[in-house]
Design a binder for these strands. Sequence first.
DNA 1: TATTGTTATACTCTATAACTATA
DNA 2: TATAGTTATAGAGTATAACAATA
Lengths: 158, 158
Amino acid sequence: MAAQSQYEELARQLSAIGAVKRGLARALPAHCPSGSAAALTLIDQHGEMRMSRLAELLAVDMSVTSRHVAHAAERGWIERSPDPADKRSRILRLTAAGQDMLGVLSQRSIDTLAHTLDDWSDDEVGELNVMLARLRHSFDCKARALPPHHDLDTRTPV
Amino acid sequence: MAAQSQYEELARQLSAIGAVKRGLARALPAHCPSGSAAALTLIDQHGEMRMSRLAELLAVDMSVTSRHVAHAAERGWIERSPDPADKRSRILRLTAAGQDMLGVLSQRSIDTLAHTLDDWSDDEVGELNVMLARLRHSFDCKARALPPHHDLDTRTPV
DNA sequence: TATTGTTATACTCTATAACTATA
DNA sequence: TATAGTTATAGAGTATAACAATA
């Protein structure tokens, strides 16, 4: 267990990390918003999969996943073939154009981070990666069990 | 300098950290979106300031800052008084209601993180905080110098 | 003329709910 | 009846550009 002030600080850091994400997003090619980029990356990493699995990996609602995938499919980066085992499902695969786009995406991320983190050692970046992965995992496991706030207490301090 | 694969991994981790941010945002009281929450936190942390300074701390455009502050001011959390030294400017201060709201916000962040990170030590959370702060700092310093992509190369792989 | 702040507009990401097609 | 996926709608965050007031 950490001190309360560490949690408050972490909340602030997470709130501010959006600026870093926007910095990376600015390097994306036109017509490839970060949502589509994330979908391409995950399909490349995990291989072909169904919509529901991708939604799980993206940690967003399937309706959101559907939009990102539709965007990528319209541009020829993702192919959606019918699943022979279940006619409701569709199997997602990267096309050759999708792999090309992924190459551009990777290179731009690398360029941006190599420039901004030029004074970070390999170990330091690796350590940050490990901790971010663990942070995500902790949330995946335990956040579901959190009772939603009903805001009954919001009225008191006003 | 880190290996390219570490940069690619960091880009993936940052892309996925949105799920954690959404987890924290779900604990926010109604009518206090994360943008307003961030504004309240920064004014509390740094004391009274002008719009332009807050925009700098939030690392977003001043038009965005203006919206967040207007939202908070409408609810009585922030007071905007004219700056005697420059009639174009407004000085931002937390009201008593704003400090109350801030107390609620802090407590909810602490509750959420204490629950999800219950197996993290104080040192581990502290180390993550340090690295996230350094990440932000690296971007603040160097991202401005990055040449914007003109997407001339996007046409090639298609 | 330049700067501070606001507003109008547009785009992206997200969730909920309604809907279809299939299981 | 339940599940996989799509679409419509709505809310939040952001940026650019046009604008008003002041420096």
